[in-house]
Amino acid sequence: MSSGNGSLVSVRNLKKYFPVIRGTIIQRHVGDIKAVDDVSFDILKGETLGLVGETGCGKTTVGRTILRLYEPTAGEIIFEGTNLEEVVGGDLRRMRRKMQMIFQDPYASLNPRMTVGSIIAAPLEVHKVVSGKEKHDRVQELLQMVGLNPYFVNRYPHEFSGGQRQRIGIARALALNPDLIICDEPISSLDVSIQAQVVNLLEELQEQLGLTYLFIAHDLSMVRHISDRMAVMYLGKIVEITDRDEIYLNPLHPYTQALMSAVPIPDPDIIETRQRIILEGDIPNPSDPPVGCNFNTRCPVAVDICFKEEPAYLEIRAGHWTACHLVKPEGN
């Protein structure tokens, strides 16, 4: 991991455990759900890092912990050279201007009692950036930027469709000129034809404003489309990270290979010739992960060592990291 050079965010050994509590009067801490378990990666300036994985693998928790919406259990998050853990109170609030989030559900993430104008202006007010006429102008500008008619400023969220609401959420995230936007499943609740509209908008905005995205989603084709690099998570750990072409052409981890082969490709010719790896079983319970490699319950190629030791997270070749006993770094 090239720390420092060109990275906007460096995440080091990040852990986030949610305690499991039993009992009502006498409460006992009986265990932890290891939502994120020792994860390290960098997000480079101006890139889109895609974070993929199945339900409950911890991808959303990673996003929220980077913004310190959750306090990390352990580990460091370094944003532009500042360790976020050491920042508190007003300073943290100032740091948050540079990091914004777009949420999954465009219905739940907009207050139904606020007009679109006041929703988009809210971050400007909270951070006391601009007021009065300037604020009004900024809201108009933002609406235009996301392809909505500035005339809609006094309407309420229910008057908009899902895709339009997601545009409102994007405008709100852009209001403070952030450097980093964490997009948490921004398109999964939208119809296919509307998804493409929103993804194209996100790409245009990135080009215009030089934004950096952490794009969290479970749709591999879409993540591969929008990302420069991709990280694959399984049960709280990153199992593989590399650039978008390498991960498709040359996936190293058996989980990534299975995931890639499970994605349907809408082309009858490819379907006929394609080899599918169908994993057996379900994702284990994150409060009681398997001993050794956490993928060993479903891995088609697991050997003895996988049930005893946890594999190290290694750089196999330049920029391609994975954690599997069966994959050895090149040149050794």
Binding site: V192, Q195, Q197, V199, N200, L220, H225, R244, Y248, I270
Partner: peptide, 14 residues
Amino acid sequence: GSLPRLDEVPGTKL
């Protein structure tokens, strides 16, 4: 056309 394909070449626009 609005469906990204896993096997797409880089730079494809939806």
